[in-house]
Design a protein around this nucleic acid. Structure first.
Lengths: 221, 221
DNA sequence: CGATAGTTCCAAAGATCTGTGGAATAGTGT
DNA sequence: ACACTATTCCACAGATCTTTGGAACTATCG
């Protein structure tokens, strides 16, 4: 049994998955791809990278089995390879936020002051089914179209200020976005409350919603 | 809002967790630490590394929040930081094995031919409670002592051949070890069957058993 | 208090990773 | 076939990671 050589080789291969998750820019890409399939140029712009670099990162993710591709004419669309990958990413975020104090500190800096009220998934469901609250999805509309929380309406963050009149002034508004570290929902709650609405936000986002096995609405399914 | 700089910083911090999982030797260390707390010298020997390198890897894991330490006299014992970390490692193995064909191939090379019968966790429980089978834990006895499947007996792999007389020749024997990629159980089944026993193995190991929420026996708990 | 065992710190060499322009490739539409 | 768009391949410079001996710490024990 020549296992003295085979075991390190096996673990080195598994480590490719870890390596793929070991770069901030790649995590930003995964963060987007968990929401919906994206083309390379879109990802490059969203992550603030040039296209060549983005392509290289995507190759890394692909070799690690985390994403897959489909050709659509001249563009190539990358998507998350399976639900197991989304679960892995979610678990990575969980570990990072619970085990690393620095992550928590950086998250607070990024998301802003702790001045917004958050509610749990169950609480959201409860308030919505009681007719107490309406749910607003502040992600880009393309992500809303890919999948969203049932009954949520789509008002992308960058349109929110100009579409305030569509919202009820006397009903609670629950906003949500991509995940725990998505800043849209924090910003949205601040904006809404500044305009006299009663807004709260889902504590995490649609990633965690999905991983918890909650139902989603999506066009084809 | 200067989030243009804060978001990359946040993801770069989270990526430390990925980086920590992005090295084969560190994964081998995590694989051991999931079983029980270990001292640095023990880990160095088990992973085939010199102590300095092992210490450096452990620092990396610690900074990523994956392991924690306790001092015990002059030795420092490393342990997995939380169940969430074990779950993350388990999910990493799941993704690697389901999404990367090369991992599967390397696993087959390492674990040997596909000549051993495997059974599921539920099947193990069924056969044991029906009195059909006995369960043998072939991990090192120290790991058995830390936690094991209820009713399992401990016969470490390197003692198995000399302790065959302790086993019932006419009853099914189910062996298990650390996890999916642990070779002990495969080798044990081959050895037992070669000596005329009827042996099968648990498809994965105690890591997956624990992550599935199955009960464990351990001295203090 | 000096000797010892276990661990970490330090510095340096070699390997690997990251980001970048420029060139190459693969479909689309004219 | 040609121009055009989206993506990937290539090569290189700069940064980061890995491994290793040797020195420095820290708790224990005689």
């Amino acid at each position: 049994m020549p296992e003295r050589r085979l075991r390190p080789a096996l673990y080195e291969l598994i480590a490719l998955v870890g390596k793929a998750l070991g770069n901030g820019k790649r995590l930003e890409l995964v963060d987007l791809l968990v929401q919906r399939p994206y083309a390379v140029v879109e990802l490059a712009q969203a992550a603030g990278l040039n296209v060549t670099t983005t392509s290289a990162h995507l190759q890394t993710l692909k070799h690690a089995g985390l994403v897959s591709t489909t050709r659509d004419g001249t563009t190539i669309r990358y998507r998350i390879a399976s639900d197991a990958v989304a679960a892995l990413y979610g678990q990575l975020l969980t570990v990072a936020s619970t085990q690393m104090a620095e992550v928590d500190a950086a998250a607070r800096r990024y998301l802003g002051p702790d001045d917004t009220e958050e509610i749990s998934r169950d609480e959201l469901l409860r308030r919505v089914s009681a007719g107490q609250a309406i749910v607003v999805d502040v992600r880009p509309s393309s992500e809303y179209e890919a999948a969203h929380i049932p009954k949520a309406v789509s008002i992308p963050m960058d349109e929110l200020e100009s579409r305030l009149s569509e919202l009820p002034p006397d009903q609670e508004i629950v906003v949500y976005c991509r995940g725990v570290y998505c800043s849209f929902s924090h910003d949205a709650v601040r904006l809404l409350n500044a305009h006299g609405f009663h807004a709260t936000r889902l504590a995490d986002g649609i990633l965690e919603w999905q991983l918890a096995g909650q139902p989603l609405s999506s066009p084809i399914r």
